[in-house]
């Protein structure tokens, strides 16, 4: 059976992609941010996952307001970068883990989830940036992906606890998948930021740091919070942080934190990263 080897969390701010595209990686503004991801990249190189399940939200690029899916799961052969207004970015297309995607969709339906099933869809910075942060900018991505889109823009957005539950179903799908492939799950989005209204520019580094602790040690607390508490604590757009719960829900109760990184502000956002392994099967490496 397939195996879950790690849970990764990261912000997916578009300016990160733009900074890479413009060659700003080593400028004073960006170097400390990017350097913090080196241990995460090393972890990926060492553990060589075959499939990355990436949970993110579309930002008004693949979906318009006419039809907003609460959860959408990709099962395409290929996911091309979408034109977000500046032309599609010059990064390789993502190859889909087609067969696993369908298996996951079957498992979701059997477990009373109601996903939209996407055989053809383009993807925005929500998945692009996390992939670049952990895998760099290869000529071809060395992993196949399964994109999970979550509506965190138009209300009603899903409950945090529902995201957490979806993670459990994802774990079940991985462990019932008859290959020996190695899976990582990436929760993306956040941390605190607000783009709209007079509170624009709100960041909450204290809450962000607490979140990076709690996601490892007390995920039930985070899953039990209301949507409104997310907005209050992390800002109107920071509420997308609840998508990390899908990743966390796929993991065991007890995890080992391998790496962790926090930087503020990346553009207008508190930016964070975490690498976790299930404690029961963790590699013998020293924790961060």
């Amino acid at each position: 059976m397939a195996k879950l080897i790690g849970g990764l969390g990261t912000s997916h701010v578009p300016s990160i992609g733009a900074a890479i595209d413009k060659g700003l990686r080593d400028t004073p503004d960006w170097k400390p941010f990017f350097d913090g991801y080196i241990p995460g990249q090393d972890w990926v190189k060492e553990h060589k996952p075959d499939v990355a399940v990436v949970i993110f939200n579309d930002h008004g690029n693949s979906f318009f307001l006419d039809k907003v899916p609460t959860f959408a799961v990709g099962c395409a052969e290929e996911y091309r970068p979408v034109d977000e207004g500046w032309g599609p970015r010059a990064i390789p297309s993502f190859k889909g883990a087609v067969d696993f995607s369908w298996h996951f969709i079957d498992t979701l339906i059997e477990n009373r989830f109601d996903p939209m099933i996407c055989q053809e869809i383009e993807v925005d910075h929500g998945i692009q940036v996390p992939m670049e942060l952990f895998w760099g900018r290869p000529a071809e991505w060395p992993v196949q992906v399964v994109p999970i889109f979550v509506n965190v823009i138009q209300y009603p957005i899903p409950l945090p606890s529902r995201c957490y539950e979806m993670g459990r179903v994802l774990r079940q799908a991985i462990e019932s998948y008859p290959t020996d492939e190695r899976f990582v799950v990436l929760g993306t989005g956040g941390l605190s930021h607000q783009l709209q209204g007079a509170r624009a520019g709100f960041v909450n580094p204290e809450a962000d740091r607490a979140f990076l602790n709690d996601i490892a040690t007390d995920p039930d607390k985070l899953a039990g919070m209301s949507r409104e508490q997310y907005v209050e604590m992390f800002g109107s757009e920071g509420a997308e942080l609840m998508m990390w719960l899908v990743m966390r829900g796929a993991m065991d109760r007890d995890v080992v934190v391998r790496h962790k990184h926090y930087f503020v502000p990346a553009s207008m956002t508190g930016a964070g990263m975490i690498v976790m392994e299930n404690a029961a099967t963790a590699s013998p490496a020293v924790a961060a």
């Binding site: 823009i153 138009q154 209300y155 009603p156 957005i157 607000q194 709209q196 209204g197 007079a198 509170r199 209301s226 949507r227 409104e228 907005v231 209050e232 800002g235 109107s236």
Partner: peptide, 12 residues
């Protein structure tokens, strides 16, 4: 949520 009870935070 979605009823602007958090000050200066318009929800969509």
């Amino acid at each position: 949520p979605g009823q602007d009870r958090i000050p200066d935070t318009p929800l969509f």
